[in-house]
Design a protein around this nucleic acid. Structure first.
Length: 274
DNA sequence: GACAGTGTTTAATT
DNA sequence: CAATTAAACACTGT
């Protein structure tokens, strides 16, 4: 369920779990998880995926994984060659002992000394893409990273320009990279802005609030979710969000409403968000 | 059984 | 033509 915070946490985990060590071999359980381009579709499987993956990683030391928006990139001692990693809707990476059975939904594994890193993905929208120029392909078509390079009020006004509802534009990765359905709703709630407002109609004061609250929302999510064992935020436990998936607004106690916006559900508090 | 779902790409429409 | 919306993708959980 990755948005920017979950992808950043995955990046940190891969970094910790590899610590610059050498990949000894790969295990490929579903070759369609290796794609020749960024794609959500198994039909875009790399024609020679296993060999391309092995050529990229086997016998090589892992560099620090990089992230832009919701995309991960990984090079292995011969940058800019390496892999793009895409989690899609349900992708995740876990660490297991080498002798362990592959976890449920395991697509492929990177075997290092003393541990194997598995890519799991029940829904198969995620993938690994062998790439000749990881940094360039990672940045292709993306706006600035919403957490690493947060826009100021004025820049945000430009990024959200147009008649489209602000919530919809926030999800446009070409304008701003990393914001997804949950954190867009949460940031608008924190800012007291209705998701239906057109970007062009936001006042300087509202833009200033949103420019503050959006990175704050992402930062909080990273800090509260960055534990050693990866967990999707909706997986077990209570709903940690203020409006997403909630019935009652924690600020005014009023009813939370749902709205359909370009095919996605927007959760919001009509009384707190004007 | 029907339906919604944290995402992205491509096709269709405005 | 650029901007925007809808559909498709594949599968699980409710």
């Amino acid at each position: 369920m990755p948005e920017l915070p979950e992808v950043e946490i995955a990046r940190r985990q891969l970094s910790r779990w590899t610590a610059g060590d050498v990949v000894r071999e790969v295990r490929v359980l579903d070759a369609a998880a290796i794609r020749h381009k960024r794609s959500t579709m198994p039909r875009d499987a790399h024609p020679d995926g296993v060999r391309a993956l092995e050529a990229a990683v086997v016998g090589r030391a892992a560099d620090e994984p990089m992230r832009l928006g919701k995309r991960l990139g990984w090079t292995f001692g011969e940058a800019p060659r390496g892999l793009q990693l895409h989690l899609g809707m349900t992708g995740q990476w876990v660490r297991r002992a080498p002798a362990d059975e592959p976890p449920r939904f395991a697509k492929l594994g990177l075997v290092l000394d003393g541990r194997t890193l598995w890519f799991l993905d029940s829904r198969r929208f995620g993938c690994v893409v062998p790439s000749e120029d990881v940094p360039r392909e990672l940045a292709e078509g993306l706006g600035p990273d919403a957490w690493l390079n947060p826009p100021n009020a004025e820049e945000l006004g430009y990024l959200l320009r147009g008649r489209r509802p602000v919530k919809v534009t926030l999800l446009d990765q070409a304008r701003l990279a990393g914001v997804g359905n949950i954190h867009a709703a949460e940031a608008l709630w924190r800012s007291g802005i209705s998701p239906e407002r057109a970007g062009d109609d936001l006042t300087p004061a509202e833009l200033a609030r949103l420019a503050e609250e959006l990175p704050a929302q992402l930062d909080e999510a990273i800090r509260t979710q960055d534990t050693d064992e990866f967990q999707y935020v909706t997986q077990g436990g209570e709903n940690p969000f203020s409006v997403y998936g909630q019935h009652r607004c924690p600020r005014c106690e009023g009813d939370v409403a749902k709205l359909a916006q370009s095919g996605r559900t927007t959760w919001w508090c009509p009384s707190c968000q004007q």
